[in-house]
Amino acid sequence: MKILVVDDFSTMRRIIKNLLRELGFNNVSEADDGSTALPMLKTGGFDFLITDWNMPNMEGIALLKAVRADPMLKSLPVLMVTAEAKRDQIIEAAQAGVNGYIVKPFTAETLKEKIDKIFERIEAQG
């Protein structure tokens, strides 16, 4: 499984990458905002996207919308891991088609739980 982690803070990317390695995901790439992530997604055959919201140039919510609008990427599972905690924002992300939403600070267990849930759903849908 190939995963793209998008966050403008390299420390957070390292944390998520470490946790993913713990969970058995070793093929992880990184991008520091939506505008660098999108071209990677379009060329790279990724199976899963984990993205922050608050980033320069292209925010996570814009990336999510761009992914859903792209015929090749529209069914890519997207997990948001962000400090954004406004109800309106969570609703916005849900309406834009996010598959999971984690608020920072989060725990290793939460990340595992949400990833498991996303893939259970996808498998259940066939």
């Binding site: 803070f9 420390t11 957070m12 390292r14 944390i15 400090a83 920072k104 600070p105 989060f106 290793a108």
Partner: peptide, 12 residues
């Protein structure tokens, strides 16, 4: 590892 998340949160 997890306690390093402060850098992202305070950075923002």
């Amino acid at each position: 590892l997890m306690s390093q998340d402060y850098q992202d949160l305070t950075g923002q």
